[in-house]
Design a protein around this nucleic acid. Sequence first.
RNA 1: GGAGGGAUGGCCGAGCGGUCGAAGGCGGCGGUCUUGAAAACCGCUGUGGGGGCAACUCCACCCUGGGUUCGAAUCCCAGUCCCUCCGCCA
Length: 430
Amino acid sequence: MLDPAQVRDHLDEVEVKLAERGTHLPAELAAIKALDAKRRAIIPDLEEARRARKALGAKIAEAKKAGESADDLLPQGHGFSDRIKHQEAALDAVEQERRRLLLRLPNLPHESVPRGTGEKDNQEVSRWGEPRTFEFTPKAHWDLGPALGLLDFERATKMSGARFAVLLGAGARLNRALINFMLSLHTQEHGYTEVAPPFLVNDQALIGTGNLPKFEADLFKVAGDWNLYLVPTAEVPLANLHREEILDGRRLPLSYVAYTPCFRSEAGSYGKDVRGLIRQHQFEKVELFKFTAPGQSYDEHEQLTRHAEIVLEKLGLPYRRIVLCTGDMGFAATKTYDLEVWLPGQGTYREISSCSNTEAFQARRAGIKFRPDGTGKAAFAHTLNGSALAVGRTLIAVLENGQQKDGTVVVPDALRPFMDGQEVIEPRRS
RNA sequence: GGAGGGAUGGCCGAGCGGUCGAAGGCGGCGGUCUUGAAAACCGCUGUGGGGGCAACUCCACCCUGGGUUCGAAUCCCAGUCCCUCCGCCA
């Protein structure tokens, strides 16, 4: 959520920044400002009424204490409480509407973010690794995987439908190895605390991260009378780990890593990436998440992105880092780096990680504060998230980059301890 | 699924209609004492919002939401969560 005071006091600036990311809501912004003014007008009246009520109560109590009758002190009718109830209801309505509008406004881009209207305006920041030259035509994973018996799309369709896949044999093992490799790396070498969170979360958690109320169509909701959704990313449970808490500033940043499956409806992506494992309703991801003080969040964002890059480097997968332009960023982000891995079978770089700073956007929605020195006034923390990495996409990158002329796949060195020492993936026999 | 019990400040725990934002203890902070520390003693010590340069002041908050009342932490209703017992179950 945007800072309400910012909307009130710097409306023009907010409008410009929202426009930069393609959001034009002048009416909503004006409405928020008007509601804020209304709220500030109601409060003094309400407080005065409550003060008067309190004073009367004290008088009656005193009279009773003195053994006198308080009958003549009692107010006529209910005018008193009715007035307060009226004002309370009015205030409540104003605050609710104000919050409802605020929850639908995206975050504002950071000044270091390039302006632009879409993907074409994203900027490459850096590149690592040299795409391998093949002495044969490399296959895409949707051919390679099924040929090796690792990946089965047809059978997944029978039990679940389109955009699902089954991993088999060394494919399933590779998947598991990647998860363990990533978790071990981040916990042992990058200082993250491992978390195994719930895979179902309630609506409040999703409001906290910015997935609700605006993007309900992207989510899978649990059937029946449950206020629960399948997690679209581990970012949701991780961000809510410290919901409604005041953290000790001396212990910041807090760094967490979690593996979870992720579930997305992919509404609005019909016809896009229909082949292979790129865009599935269910995928797996190892997610990094940090709670930081405001002054440190951009440094930490760079570091967190580095931690994701190191996964690719250890696996020997060429990639590039992109900074998303204002028009291509997600709802909650002020700045986002995407990492794109080289996929030789498709001759292109594809997104494999997205690392964002949301500043206080999620913290404000989820009530996550901190005290700088452990004492004093609490302020909203900043939160960062990043995939490190998307497991399915890493799996296909390993397959496509490691494939050999005879159809087998070389397992990257770093992964072998997690693959029970297996060095080469050969066609599955059983 | 059935039957009970509970939710109060950082923690423990009293309060069960009238200045209660809330006793007491622990913890934390400051002081006295001490060469230093401990112990002992004294004082301070919740959060959010509004107003004032400030000393300060006002309002709200005792799980959440309704209700009763001049007045609710205390009474009533609904919900959430936790605990115990029985049943079922990976």
